[in-house]
């Protein structure tokens, strides 16, 4: 096992390409160290990216924000402008673990760990975020929903890693929200998560919507049918009920130690309805 802390992206990519065996990126380490301790993972190379310039920065870009891969949950939460523009994303990231975990865990780590229950992922999908992948030959930007292929598996090729996430500029009258269900009030992995992002016209009619569910399938789902039900409507009870039904139907969860199929399906609907209402209130301002 080798620990490296390169100071440029080029050096980092070089290390990854040359590495034999398993390589793992260290940003916050809150997933990596747990996996190593359990014996699930014994990487040959651990590459700490925190010494690469930009990795710990939040930078305004095209009216939105670029969030470096090593920005911790606490740092993101303390950034007033990001919180104001995309409260749904920030609240999702802040739900990951305890205060201690927040001091280290990163949004990009949450994305690349590729857990179906990752809190920040449905929130990022809902706001249309993109991830920047750096690698040997090219740098590419992809929608965040394409990063995870299956639990623990990503599209990243050898030599590649995600260097940042880009949150686009929010249109006027846009609101985002993320809710999750856990058995306790803190410290649990989401049993169901729901991210909603809405844009309204001046009359309060939904003109743009994205709905994403977490922990109810092998990876976070973008539920287009749920968005469709909102488009062209105000959020009256009838629309909300239909939204909840569609979200429940879209969920294809499993029974496991954290929840049952029936529970997850029902709560997917409940949370999506509640998140939509919060997003709606936020969009109205």
């Amino acid at each position: 096992m080798r620990y490296e802390a390169p100071e440029t992206i080029k050096a980092a990519v070089g290390l990854l390409i040359k590495a034999r065996g398993q390589s793992r990126i260290l940003a916050g380490g809150t997933d990596l160290m747990v996996q190593m301790r359990s014996g699930m993972l014994e990487p040959d190379l651990i590459m700490d990216i925190k010494r690469i310039p930009g990795m710990r920065d939040i930078v305004p870009e095209k009216g939105g924000f670029r969030i470096g891969a090593a920005v911790s949950g606490s740092e993101l939460g303390e950034h007033a402008k990001v919180s104001k523009m995309w409260p749904g994303v920030v609240e999702a990231v802040e739900l990951i673990g305890s205060t201690q975990i927040q001091g280290r865990a990163t949004m990009v780590g949450n994305l690349c760990n590729a857990s179906p229950a990752a809190d920040s992922v449905p929130a990022l999908i809902a706001v249309g975020a993109t991830a920047r992948i750096v690698g040997n030959k090219r740098t590419r930007d992809v929608p965040v929903e394409t990063i995870a292929k299956a639990p623990g598996k990503t599209i990243l090729a050898k030599g590649e890693f995600v260097s940042s996430v880009f949150l686009p500029k929010a249109l006027p009258r846009t609101g985002s929200a993320y809710l999750r269900f856990i058995p306790r009030t803190e410290m649990d992995i989401a049993v169901v998560g729901s991210g909603v992002c809405l844009t309204l016209n001046p009359k309060g009619v939904v003109t743009k919507a994205r709905v994403s569910l977490g922990a109810v399938a092998a990876r976070a789902l973008l539920v287009e049918e749920a968005a469709d039900v909102l488009l062209g409507n105000k959020l009256n009870d009838d629309v909300l009920e239909r939204l909840a039904d569609i979200a429940s139907d879209a969920a294809t969860p499993i029974n496991d130690k954290r929840g049952t199929v029936a529970f997850r399906k029902q709560v997917a609907g409940v949370l999506t309805r509640r998140a939509a209402l919060i997003a709606f209130q936020r969009a109205k301002g």
């Binding site: 802390a5 160290m33 700490d48 201690q100």
Partner: peptide
């Protein structure tokens, strides 16, 4: 949280920080 320390003023679990970093 029994292993809580601060790292550059930030509260962290020292079991999830590498000694090397």
């Amino acid at each position: 949280g029994a292993c809580s320390v601060t790292l550059d003023g930030r509260l962290v679990c020292s079991c999830l920080v590498m000694g090397a970093e």
